[in-house]
Simulated assay, not measured.
Amino acid sequence: METHARSMRHLVEESEAAGVDAELPRLFQAMADRAVAAGHGSEGYPAMVHQFRAGPATGTGEGTDADAGARLVAKYISTWNERDPRRRRALAAEVFTAHAEYVDPSVQAVGLRAIDDHIARWQTQFTEATFQFGEVHGHHNSVYFDWSFGLSGESPIGRGWDTVELEHGRIRRVFGFFASRTAG
């Protein structure tokens, strides 16, 4: 898997350099990276089957494992805070389904590329700001949490909350709500 993960990274880089949609190679790269992280680095593609057999990271049936939901939200927030475009896209490929949707009062972004473009625009507007999140609540393959963003050590610039729909342990849809924006 380590060799395959490196190959997928190269394919993503070459696709992006050529202006070709790299969404699918990014998905396979994220899957290969997860297999390596799970200790299957010396194995081949069948090692990725373990990811499918393990079931959703957020639990099975109608419940949502609170710890798994909180870990996914932490990774989601890390995606917003990651300034390196390649690392941000790799995180997004792990967090979101291939056809995920992000909706807030200012945008409706469908697909990994559109979501990444929206995050990049936000980062351009708030160059030094980072997100933090509060307690995560979840049930029936959905989670809810509040968030804030601002400069480190200062009062938040903005606050809000997200409701997230999960699919197979990843984010399928985000509905973001803005509470208020305060002077920072």
Results as ranks from 00 to 15, higher is better:
152 S>L: 14
157 I>Q: 06
16 E>A: 05
88 R>F: 04
8 M>R: 11
55 G>Q: 12
92 A>F: 08
168 H>I: 06
106 S>M: 15
176 G>S: 03
146 D>E: 14
32 A>Q: 09
158 G>Y: 08
166 L>P: 00
59 G>E: 08
173 R>P: 00
83 R>C: 06
180 S>Q: 07
166 L>Q: 02
6 R>A: 15
104 D>L: 08
90 A>N: 08
101 E>I: 12
109 A>H: 08
83 R>D: 01
42 S>C: 10
52 F>P: 00
162 D>L: 04
127 T>K: 13
125 Q>N: 14
148 S>F: 10
53 R>T: 13
164 V>A: 02
48 M>P: 03
44 G>T: 14
142 S>I: 05
30 A>N: 05
4 H>D: 13
105 P>N: 09
101 E>S: 13
48 M>G: 11
24 L>F: 15
128 E>W: 08
55 G>R: 14
21 D>W: 05
25 P>A: 08
97 T>L: 00
114 A>W: 00
133 F>R: 01
91 L>T: 00
35 A>P: 00
21 D>N: 09
30 A>P: 00
144 Y>I: 04
51 Q>L: 15
28 F>D: 03
36 V>H: 05
79 T>Q: 03
161 W>R: 14
129 A>D: 02
23 E>K: 10
56 P>I: 09
84 D>M: 09
167 E>M: 10
174 V>F: 01
59 G>W: 07
1 M>G: 04
86 R>I: 07
134 G>N: 07
45 Y>I: 14
76 Y>W: 10
168 H>M: 06
161 W>D: 10
51 Q>F: 11
69 G>I: 04
128 E>V: 07
38 A>G: 11
52 F>H: 12
173 R>K: 06
117 D>Q: 09
10 H>E: 15
82 E>F: 05
145 F>I: 02
99 H>I: 12
93 A>K: 05
24 L>D: 07
88 R>G: 01
86 R>N: 07
62 E>C: 09
44 G>L: 14
47 A>F: 08
120 A>Y: 04
146 D>F: 10
30 A>W: 02
162 D>Q: 07
60 T>V: 14
57 A>Y: 07
172 R>L: 09
12 V>D: 04
41 G>M: 08
88 R>A: 10
55 G>E: 13
178 F>V: 09
8 M>G: 02
28 F>V: 12
177 F>T: 06
33 D>P: 01
127 T>S: 13
176 G>V: 03
40 H>Q: 12
175 F>R: 12
13 E>L: 10
153 G>V: 09
123 Q>P: 01
171 I>P: 00
107 V>S: 08
103 V>I: 14
94 E>W: 03
18 A>V: 01
69 G>T: 04
94 E>Q: 14
